[in-house]
Design a binder for these strands. Structure first.
Lengths: 332, 332
DNA sequence: ACTCGGATTGTAATCGTTTACATACCTAAC
DNA sequence: GTTAGGTATGTAAACGATTACAATCCGAGT
């Protein structure tokens, strides 16, 4: 049933070593023998067993990608960037979806220690930093999108602080003063950074922020909707809102529309991410665009270098974000 | 550096066999020895090498899922269903994104033959049926969403024909007679099925379909937009359009709006898939909902049975689709 | 005290490759 | 015709676990 290298060797009247060489270093074996062997391989429809090869070589040609939610188009785009360079370099990707669950996130660390992958890229870092650091000491690990404060683990992301600052300044420059902010979950560095950028911009322009107007969401459409409804309920309306994700921005806008107000005429809304859908949505979202695919590509290339123990000059790669102006923000 | 089972054995003063047993069949080893071994494992921070185990056991506890485009929210939801039951059963998933490329799709078949995965679920079947059949003869394979005509490969999907028929009949019952259809790529069975359902409904109600009004798209927003613009250019307007995907339906609607017409007042549009975004879109899409997550779950469970050589009663699992009525369709 | 038999543990073969090392081959130069 | 020296092949030891089989232990029954 199962045809192995010995079968091929037997059929071609050579040793297993020769067969193996034909497959991996053809230049070291004579033309005529190569042909014999190739013929035998063909005849038996032999396929080398990768597991055996991996055991011998102590490498899996596989990398693990840990994603908080594959269903989120932003992450799937990053993933695609990773996958693209992975296959180009002959690697496969093992998918780890955590469903935003810290425990499962931790669980995936084992895969690395159990040698089932040569390296790992994390698109989430909710678990305790120490555990990640520990693993990263022994295995190639890179963070994408997220980062860990004060850590030297290689990272690729945008500068969330400056992105958020730029977004907020844009609102201010258009005359807005009473600006609300709907943040992501604050246990995530990236959410805190965006909030920090928001505060920085407000401070620079000497505006005070009304504490009631900064609320913590969870990046989801629903949380955006609910938080905006809360503003209505409280009777505390801003003239503009900076939402830390496009999903939330859309929720906010839906809520505003539900009160028969208009965006941007009555209230402006600015998002973050630039999902494909954000330009289809009405009003089309003004937002900060993240180069998701490129983040993935860069992360994988960085990981590749780590795996091959090449020198990495910059450990933190910051990609450019961009304010894309569409229709959801207006002047005061 | 690398701590193996022999190190543990040495430290605990037992044989490697015993260590292995502690890990895999604890009931066969005495309590006190188990403790000794566990302590040694702890002390050395030993993690079994999965590759070695897999080689010995000839199984990888990994399954391969081949997706045409992970970025598409529909597929990523199916994938999530697969992943959910996979991890529940102790399996990991290897991701194969083909980028809609037939060659890459074919390439992934090798992974199975090279024993890097115990089974495979295909969310796409564009390549020639013979190749898939061939692989499926020797390895566990299940198709999800797609199917191959006249094949006995286990499949889970909805009934695309009846779904499309139901959708079209709904339009007809509302008084529409001049109905257009924007199909998916017709080299895909599923697209042909949806078109077939459309024709069936029209025939049953004795309506003639204007050939100009059925056009082939590629499931994308842009193709929907462009094809609708083509209708405008031709001056051939239907009163309703059945689009074979929500993405295309949204494109169609955008095109209609761009001509200052209204949906559904001037033209009705009905979609297919029920993406998360379809209910946020304005007008909210009336569409055929596919149980994406459940398709994934069922596919994985089916695959599990194949892998364990259990008897599978039904080889084709048909899940229920559902017409969800929202705002994009009106009476004539 | 001595056996017997089940419960534990140990020894060594095995999974299917790769590869260090040894050996055989072959050509060219003398 | 020898031989040096590279080239091509073969032999067998890894890789790190699992497991069939053999060996040992230990308590109960006599």
């Amino acid at each position: 049933m199962m045809v192995g290298i010995v079968d091929v060797a037997k059929k071609a009247n050579v040793s297993t070593a020769t067969v193996s060489r034909v497959l991996t270093k053809p230049e070291t074996v004579r033309e005529t023998t190569t042909e014999k062997v190739l013929k035998a391989i063909e005849a038996l429809n032999y396929q080398p067993n990768l597991i055996a090869r991996q055991l011998r070589r102590l490498e899996t040609k596989t990398i693990l990608v840990v994603v908080p939610d594959i269903t989120n188009p932003f992450f799937s785009k990053v993933l695609r960037g990773i996958e693209a360079v992975a296959v180009a370099k002959g690697y496969q990707v093992l998918l780890g979806d955590t469903g935003n669950d810290v425990e499962r996130e931790k669980g995936y660390l084992n895969i690395l220690q159990q040698k089932k992958a040569d390296g790992m890229v994390l698109l989430t870092a909710r678990m305790d930093a120490a555990a990640v650091e520990e693993v990263a000491r022994s295995f190639p690990v890179v963070l994408a999108c997220e980062y860990i404060e004060g850590s030297r683990i290689p990272t690729v992301s945008i500068d969330n602080i400056s992105g958020a600052r730029k977004a907020t300044e844009y609102l201010i420059d258009l005359g807005h003063e009473r600006i609300g902010c709907i943040t992501g979950p604050l246990d995530i560095v990236l959410s805190r950074d965006r909030l920090k950028g928001f505060y920085q911009a407000m401070a620079r322009k000497n505006l005070i922020v009304d504490p009631v107007l900064v609320q913590e969401g969870d990046f989801s459409f629903d949380s955006g909707f609910n938080l905006m409804m809360k503003f209505f309920a409280l009777g505390q309306l801003p003239t503009a809102i900076f939402a830390a994700s496009d999903d939330m921005a859309m929720g906010v806008i839906k809520a505003i529309k539900s009160k028969d107000l208009k965006v941007p005429e009555d209230i402006s809304v600015l998002g973050f991410d630039d999902l494909k859908f954000s330009s289809i949505f009405e009003p089309a979202l003004t937002t900060i665009a993240q180069p998701a695919f490129e983040i993935g590509e860069n992360a994988m290339e960085l990981l590749m270098k780590l795996i091959h123990k090449e020198e990495v000059k910059r450990e933190q790669i910051i990609l450019a974000d961009q304010l894309v102006v569409r229709e959801s923000v207006g002047t005061i």
